[in-house]
C-alpha cells in the first residue's frame, strides 16, 4: 500500500508566480486622489448646471433627451444649490488642476508616458480590442508593453479630456480676464457647451472603466493599490534573469 506524499508547502516549491511592478507609487496616489476630486467636480458642476439647464440631445429639432429630468436633480439633491455648487466647484477646481498637472509632469519625468502613448496603429488596434471585448472576435489582441491599444488610446484621451475640462473651465470662470482662451473655444456659450460635453465624456469613461476593471479581475484591480501584479512565470523562463545581454538590456530599461 502506498501513500501519496502530502503536497509540500507552497514555499518549498519552485516559484511559479512573481509580482511585477505595474503602477508606480506616484501614479497610484494621483489616480486615487483624482477619483474623489472628479466626483466632487461633477457633483458641484451639476448643481451649477441646474440653474440654467438648457441642454438637450436630439437631431434636427427632435429632442431625444433633456439634461436633466427634474427627478434626477431631486434624487441627487442638486436643485436650488447654485451658491454651494459654485463654492465647491471654484475651490476644488484648484485641487483637480494641481493633481492633473502633477500627474502629467510625473508621467513625463518618469518616462511612464511611453506606456500610455498611442501610435499610428492604435486606432485599428483599438478596434480589434473592442471586437474581442464584445466577444465578436476570439483571439485576444496583443498588449504593447503594459496596455493594449484601446487602453493606450483611452487613457491618453482621458488625460486630454482633463486638460480640456480645465481649459474650458477657466474660459467660463474668467471669460474677460482670460479672453484669448474663451475666444479659442468659440466664445463663452460655446465654452460652456464644451465643458458640459467633457463632463458627459468623463462619465462615459468612468462607466466603461469600472466595467473593464471588473472584467479584468481582482489581481488587476489590486495592482492599482499595491503597484504590483501577480503573474505566472512561464515554464521556460528562468526564475532569475540570466546574464545574457538581452535581458540585461531589458532590466536596464525599467
Amino acid at each position: 500500500m502506498t501513500f501519496h506524499h502530502p503536497p509540500p508547502d507552497e514555499t518549498e516549491q519552485p516559484a511559479t508566480r512573481k509580482a511585477v511592478l505595474k503602477h508606480r507609487r506616484g501614479s497610484r496616489w494621483m489616480h486615487w486622489i483624482n477619483f474623489p476630486l472628479i466626483v466632487i467636480m461633477v457633483w458641484s458642476g451639476l448643481r451649477i448646471y441646474w440653474a440654467e439647464d438648457v441642454y438637450a440631445f436630439g437631431i434636427l429639432g427632435w429632442e431625444w433627451f433633456k439634461f436633466f429630468p427634474e427627478s434626477f436633480y431631486e434624487t441627487l439633491d442638486l436643485n436650488r444649490r447654485l451658491a454651494r455648487g459654485l463654492a465647491f466647484h471654484f475651490n476644488f477646481a484648484w485641487l483637480f488642476t494641481i493633481n492633473g498637472l502633477a500627474f502629467v509632469v510625473y508621467t513625463w519625468r518618469t518616462g511612464e508616458w511611453r506606456e500610455l502613448a498611442p501610435n499610428r496603429r492604435s486606432l485599428s488596434g483599438s478596434l480589434d480590442v473592442l471586437l474581442h471585448d464584445l466577444r465578436i472576435r476570439k483571439e485576444e489582441p496583443p498588449k504593447r508593453g503594459r496596455y493594449n491599444e484601446a487602453q493606450r488610446l483611452t487613457y491618453s484621451l482621458v488625460i486630454l479630456l482633463g486638460a480640456l475640462a480645465i481649459l474650458s473651465g477657466f474660459a467660463i470662470f474668467k471669460p474677460t480676464q482670460v479672453f484669448p482662451l474663451t475666444w479659442i473655444l468659440g466664445g463663452y456659450t460655446s465654452a460652456r457647451i464644451i465643458h458640459f460635453t467633457v463632463t458627459l465624456a468623463f462619465i462615459l469613461f468612468f462607466v466603461v472603466h469600472i466595467l473593464q476593471v471588473a472584467r479584468a479581475g481582482w489581481r488587476n484591480f489590486t495592482s492599482m493599490v499595491t503597484g504590483y501584479e501577480l503573474v505566472d512565470i512561464e515554464p521556460d523562463e528562468p526564475d532569475e534573469p540570466a546574464e545574457s545581454p538581452k535581458s540585461a538590456e531589458e532590466t536596464a530599461d525599467v
Binding site: T11, K18, A19, L21, Y228
Partner: peptide
C-alpha cells in the same frame, strides 16, 4: 520600487 518582487514580498 523594484521592477519585480517575490510572491512573499508581494
Amino acid at each position: 520600487e523594484k521592477p519585480e518582487i517575490s510572491v512573499e514580498a508581494y
